[in-house]
Design a protein around this nucleic acid. Structure first.
Lengths: 244, 244
DNA sequence: CCAAAAGTGTTGCTACTACACCCATGC
DNA sequence: GCATGGGTGTAGTAGCAACACTTTTGG
């Protein structure tokens, strides 16, 4: 006979039962070379030794979930300022063969250049290109390094897939895309980011105007340098014009 | 010095540390009398004795999160078929004064008539009208019974607010709204549901055509009965015409 | 001048809104 | 007939996609 919810909430003694471990896992995303990419860690020990996993850590008793995610993020260099958002909580019974671990997944968006320092400092890190089929039903993602698929640990393929899906759903109407670019950027660079996330080519003039009409962009007077053709204007993300 | 994520994932012994309790809390939503409503439980014991809380329960070691949510839902009568979706995970350190409890919030959508049986069977249940300001920044919700505000326990005001926000964001493009109606319904009833969730009046002809053009509705030949004016046609939700 | 990419003007489509109007039913 | 709400026809508008076009740079 199931207990009523009132009994559960008021009469339950949590100390008397086994409790699961709770972890945070981070999808550190960027767009590199025209494709969405995420940072992965090579696991050296079982379970899933030799496979690749999302960076993560267990939640301590004295920190909140967001705090834990920020802490794990802070372990990497140059990533403290990233955009971070809770993604989903994965809690299948057997997702970790050792013990019951419930994982709260977060994703963080970073400009491409933020990964260089972290990769140099730690050889167990890898930058993986994420491939996610455009079919809406499937949520599984795949990770690729150069030409070879990286085998993923735990249910992290699902987490990767969901991160890309969430981003696809938000990038059209929310300014999250700017978190993937440096402070100043060209409209071409912004379009490349959108195309990489959405996985489809976009019409250049339409994209330009859509972005400019939104009022999110502030033209700096400056122009791109180093090109052998007409230099593009650099824009800046104007935080919130009306601020909701 | 912070441990690297590799150390955390591979070298951490979860048995050696304290673990938080993990619960699921359910926002059982419907639209009653032209306003969004949710089912609340009156707490009889501290903490928050006398205040109202979302029905919930601790996650057992041998069940997944979705499974736990379904189990808590199943404690109520006539609610097994509801649409259920994970909402957000709340993990502030002091959200429960007794001990560290991380709560995975779910929301479930039910037709209005599903609440009647549950309310009759259990006197500690109450149906609360949810009020959420339309300002986008704020996420706090309020619960009202008739004319009096119900004081909520824990961070459940925030959970209620987020549930309505999530529904507002989805109802325009996803067929979730049909889960709030019985199997057959009139277009007027569907519009009432949308207006209640969004909190704004909608144009009738525009709404009609928008819904019919989507291809989600299947006309049953039948008509509403009991009205003293022209009876409206009853429609049925056509599951997935193309199925993505 | 040429190549290449930045940036603009114009057209047309689609989705949606607003308003006006007709239709069916019970009293 | 008349009140009431169901249902339809007809503009008008905003956002966006497609295409052709001009502009600006380095070589």
């Amino acid at each position: 006979m199931a207990l009523s919810e009132a009994e559960f909430l008021t009469g339950y003694d949590p100390g008397a039962y086994d409790r699961p471990s709770v972890a945070v896992d981070l999808v550190l995303m960027s767009v590199i070379g025209g494709a969405p990419a995420a940072l992965l860690v090579r696991r050296e020990e079982p379970p899933f030794a030799g496979r690749w996993a999302l960076p993560g850590g267990f939640v301590r008793m004295d920190e909140g979930l967001d705090e834990a995610a920020r802490r794990v993020l802070g372990d990497k260099a140059h990533m403290a300022g990233a955009y971070v958002e809770q993604l989903y909580t994965f809690g299948a019974v057997d997702r970790d063969p050792r013990t019951r671990v419930i994982s709260v997944a977060y994703f963080a968006l970073l400009p491409a250049d933020c990964f260089a320092a972290a990769l140099k400092a730690d050889g167990s890190l890898s930058l993986a290109r994420i491939a996610v089929p455009r079919t809406t039903g499937d949520v599984a993602g795949e990770a690729w390094s150069e030409d070879s698929a990286l085998p993923l640990a735990f249910d992290h393929a699902q987490v990767l897939g969901l991160a890309v899906q969430r981003l696809r759903g938000k990038i059209d109407w929310s300014p999250v895309g700017f978190a993937l670019l440096p402070e100043r950027f060209t409209l071409r660079a912004l379009q490349d980011v959108h195309e990489a996330i959405l996985g489809v080519p976009l019409n250049k003039p339409a994209f330009r105007r859509r972005m400019l009409d939104r009022g999110w962009l502030e033209p700096t007077g400056e122009r791109e340098t180093g090109s052998s053709f007409r230099p593009a204007e650099l824009f800046r993300f104007r935080s919130l014009p009306i601020s909701g």
